[in-house]
Amino acid sequence: MTAATPIVQAPIVQARGIHKHFGALHVLKGVDLVVAERELVFVIGPSGSGKSTLLRCLNRLEDPSGGSITVDGIDMLDRGTDINKARQRIGMVFQSFNLYPHMTALGNVALALRKVLGLDRPAAEARARAALERVHLADRAGHYPGQLSGGQQQRVAIARAIALEPRVMLFDEPTSALDPELVGGVLAAMRELRESGMTMVVVSHEMGFAKAAADRVIFMDDGRILEQGPPAAIFGNPQHERTRAFIGQIERH
């Protein structure tokens, strides 16, 4: 599926006019983000441009100062919304993995299955094992995070998120904390997830992955979306000077 395919269903993520202030700092200045089902959207931009904050507003790890957000039909900013229930549909993967160090890989994945979905331990563990299988780490189920490489930890974190069968996955710089030789395994897991039809919003500077897998690339600068389009257009023929300068910079690395 590509961006050219007409979108029939209602979009999964609809964020409109998102503002975010941190004290005097105006981090998001009216951002619109609409993500269709099965779409993979890449968000790039210089540090401090607000891309991570935007992502974190989508599952309300940050409370936006203004705007509206619906995810899978749920109004995320409505006070009456059960945010914990809504978050089951939104998986998130963090730059620093954030695995629970006192639990095994299996325990990490099973925790929410037991406590949020209310599965009993055998059912939760069976499902957790299946999720670890999907990131090819079933053989590491009994390992603690400290016994796993960074790449393996991040794949466990992906398993932890997908075990809840979310409707959309958010990735916040998933490979930035990894040694270069470990990046490949995480990107492979993300690509498999993409091929399974998962809707994904990815904040990352992995240009190769963006070119190969993204439907759309969004360039953010200073709290705004400056331009967006198919990867070929953004990387090959950026319209804005800022975009050009930024892409030139990261491609030199």
């Binding site: 978050r87 998986g91 620093s96 629970y100 809840l164």
Partner: peptide
Amino acid sequence: VPRGQLEAARSTGLTRWQTMAHV
């Protein structure tokens, strides 16, 4: 305990108190 632990737990739908108790 790093803030990321709490955020990871909350992002999977655990409540505030579940996050406290288990994570």
